[in-house]
Simulated scan of single mutants.
Amino acid sequence: MKNLWRRVLASTLGLALVLLCLTNVQAAELRVLAGGAMKTIWDELKPKFEQASGHKLIIRFGTTPELIKLATTGGPFDLGVVPREVFKDAAAQGQFVAGPTTDIAGVGLGVAVRSGASKPDISTPDALKQTLLKAQSIATIPASAAGAQVLRAFERLGIGDAMKAKTRVQPTPANVVEAVAKGDAELGVFLLNVLTAPGLDVVGPFPGDLQQVIVFTAALSKDTKEKAGAQALITYLKTPEAAAIIKAKGMMP
């Protein structure tokens, strides 16, 4: 019991120190580039951080290609919390401070159906293959980092060409959910946290080594004039409070 109370006290004191640091930074308007799959998480994190710090967050969401474009030609920004794949683009990487990034959250791929629909078998790679081949249509975002991993899984299963005609390309994570919930697509094949939404029932994660985790990582813009505030946001995203929200929304802190 004493050890439990010590851990609780340490966590509480740690958060208090973080919030003290936040309030000691002059309030600023922070421009953030963020992966669209984390939008529901930001809906909770944003007001909590703004209240604790006095900073205001202006967040622009996008898929990986959109984030690369925003980083390179979308005007000034202060930091990004984006899929690691953004940093594989040399031009985009050059817009961030050189050095290690800070991993914030990760999530794997999965399959979902419309609420109330029967759940197909995806327990093994072959079962997933047969389920995908039997499906009339699927919804995903091929242009995103997660969507690219989905397409690679199709290729590994030997059904890449067969799935092209069945794929209902969506522009945003919210549209993936909407397409499945309305019955416009039989299956949603995307990030598990996105598929854990009203109107959908999650069938499960990709099986075995077909599973891939998309990691969202944070870094400062090399041109930010609000370095202290931007760093304070990254520090906040690593607090127990932020981690609890990330976990509750279906991602791994």
Rank of each mutant, 00 (worst) to 15 (best):
A90I: 13
A179E: 10
E226H: 11
G110I: 03
K69S: 12
L151T: 08
G80F: 02
V203C: 07
A139H: 07
A98W: 05
L79E: 13
K225N: 14
R168H: 15
E85I: 06
V194E: 06
P171G: 12
A92V: 03
V194C: 08
K222H: 07
A242Q: 08
K119F: 09
T131M: 07
A145E: 14
T102S: 05
F190C: 06
L22R: 05
E44L: 01
D89Y: 02
G99D: 08
A52Q: 01
K119V: 12
I104V: 15
F154M: 11
G106T: 08
A127F: 06
K48I: 02
F77H: 04
V81A: 04
L109Q: 15
I234F: 00
A16F: 00
V177P: 04
G147F: 06
A174I: 03
Q212N: 13
G80P: 09
R6Y: 11
I138P: 03
P120L: 14
G75C: 09
A153S: 14
A52C: 02
P83H: 11
T167C: 05
V86H: 03
A139P: 13
A145L: 07
D43R: 01
F190R: 04
P171H: 04
E241N: 01
A143L: 02
L109F: 09
T235A: 12
P142C: 10
A197L: 03
K46Q: 14
G160L: 11
S11A: 14
M38R: 00
V189F: 04
S137N: 12
L195E: 09
L132N: 07
T73Q: 12
Y236H: 09
A27M: 10
P65I: 14
G35K: 03
L30M: 06
